[in-house]
Nucleic acid binder design. Structure first.
Lengths: 158, 158
DNA sequence: TGTGAAATGCCCGGCCC
DNA sequence: GGGCCGGGCATTTCACA
């Protein structure tokens, strides 16, 4: 990012491991990538400072949080101007059900990923928080049967 | 998950903080939620064992990895049977550009989030890895202008 | 919840490429 | 000279009472 330096094989190995285990001990990470612990610590700190690693976070099981119904909402917004788009995004991000918002090209303007407790909660969410808003046109609800995460993000082309 | 025990305010506070800083020192986490470090450590281990916390991971800046073009691909698959769906998902998950796959209801069967290096790479990806496959029907490409993540996942209803 | 031993993180030096 | 390696101390973790 700030440092547009190329990554060597050690950096790539570090990035791969840290994306699947963000809490691995530096000692173990160093052993896994084949450098001394002090060197490994320096590499990780460098990647962090350069903005390549943006943060660390715990992943939480949605079902444990009472979220059994996931959906993608395809939303049309009118007019498609900044004065309307920015408040809409802010409103959606403030909802406790919102997992992610994507501003996209195509017939629909936004794809919103939400997690609800039931289909009834989902219905309430769509009716009370989306279709009631004046800037919101059509809302198409796509229930999610299942989701999978891709592999770690590595330098492109791989 | 396995332990369907209710969360108290300390658990919720822990889960909120860990979802934005997965590498916080146990000592600091304990101070932030207002319990002794030993107690806090036990709480976190309990949440981990119960399957509420599923893991920890580092977040990586997509631009640093050379991914400047994100898109959502809406894919129709025929026939919509397990014998076709499972290999399709496996194929998509094996692509280095794939960030996430959602199996959804509606006109389209899958929404695939991909990160490419350029629009040219995106074109290649769609043509070589999706539309060439016999089970894949229409593929609609929605470029992503911008994305936002929702807040931490907390017990529902909040 | 508080304490203590073991382990870890991390700053420091010198060294080699 | 920039990055890599090993030593030493402060900090943290984690089992125990």
């Amino acid at each position: 990012m700030r440092d547009d330096v190329a990554f060597d094989s050690v950096d790539v190995a570090i990035l791969r491991i840290l994306q699947s285990d963000g809490r691995i001990a530096n000692k173990d990470l160093a052993a896994a990538v084949g450098v001394a612990p002090s060197t490994c610590l320096d590499r990780v700190a460098r990647l962090r400072r350069a903005g390549v690693i943006t943060g660390y976070l715990a992943e939480v099981d949605a079902a444990s949080m009472g979220r059994t119904v996931d959906a993608l909402l395809a939303v049309q917004v009118q007019p498609h101007s900044r004065g309307v788009v920015d408040p809409f995004v802010a409103h959606v991000l403030a909802l406790p059900e919102t997992r992610a918002v994507h501003h996209v090209t195509g017939v629909d303007d936004f794809i919103v990923h939400v997690s609800c407790g039931s289909t009834r909660d989902l219905q309430r969410l769509v009716l009370d928080e989306f279709t009631t808003r004046p800037e919101v046109g059509r809302v198409q609800t796509h229930l999610i049967f299942g989701s999978w995460r891709g592999g770690p993000l590595l330098p492109y082309p791989s």
